[in-house]
């Protein structure tokens, strides 16, 4: 095919340009329509050669490299976006962990505070109770002593009253039944004590 093409094309390229003016007559009309001009046909043959060469060079050598550069850029952008996405997720996780830790620490601190408060309260209550118990003890002791003293006083009173009453009665009646007087005095004292209390 190449040889046949060449046989077809070569005469066109090798036609003497001198024939151009003889056949073309390019002085009149548009030179583009002077189809008798062999240069016109040769121009087309060279166009095919140059265009074909340009197509070959672009499609085989130049454009694949451009594609490679653009693809590499797109891949890199995609990878960078991916990395950024990952970094963001990591940051989100870190923030979440930090929040969790803060929350736990706060809860722990609150628990500790509550525990300390409860402990202090319990201690306080215990101390208060002890003091109250001592107070009550002292109070009861005092009560007992008062009651003892009163009973003693009451006993002494009955004796004195019986003596006095016996002396009075013996002076009035010449004689006195000491036992009956003592009973009467005791009864009277008990009645008065009951009223007084």
């Amino acid at each position: 095919m190449g040889v046949r093409m060449l046989r077809l094309v070569l005469p066109v390229l090798l036609l003497p340009p001198a024939a151009a003016h003889a056949a073309g007559g390019s002085s009149e009309g548009m030179p583009q329509l002077a189809f008798g001009n062999p240069l016109l046909l040769a121009q087309v043959v060279w166009l095919l050669v140059i265009f074909g060469g340009l197509y070959w060079a672009l499609s085989r050598i130049v454009l694949p490299r451009v594609d490679a550069v653009i693809e590499a850029r797109e891949a890199r952008i995609a990878a960078d976006l991916d990395a950024a996405q990952k970094a963001k997720q990591e940051a989100d996780r870190a923030i979440e962990a930090y929040r969790e830790a803060t929350r736990r620490a706060r809860a722990e601190a609150q628990a500790k505070v509550a525990e300390a408060v409860a402990k202090a309260e319990a201690e306080q209550n215990a101390r208060t109770d002890a003091i109250l118990a001592r107070f009550n003890e002292t109070l009861r002791e005092a009560d007992r002593r008062i009651t003892g003293a009163r009973n003693q006083a009451m006993g002494a009173l009955a004796e004195v009253a019986t003596d006095t009453a016996a002396a009075l009665v013996s002076r009035l009646a010449g004689r006195a039944d000491r036992a009956r007087i003592a009973a009467a005095v005791n009864a009277e004292i008990a009645a008065r004590a009951g009223r007084a209390l």
């Binding site: 066109v12 390229l13 121009q43 060079a57």
Partner: peptide, 22 residues
């Protein structure tokens, strides 16, 4: 001698410029 015209010359320049640019 091979009927290479100035038109073809500019085709060649255009092709060269395109290839050079790319």
């Amino acid at each position: 001698s091979v009927n290479f015209t100035q038109s073809n010359l500019f085709m060649l320049i255009a092709a060269g410029l395109i290839l050079a640019l790319m």
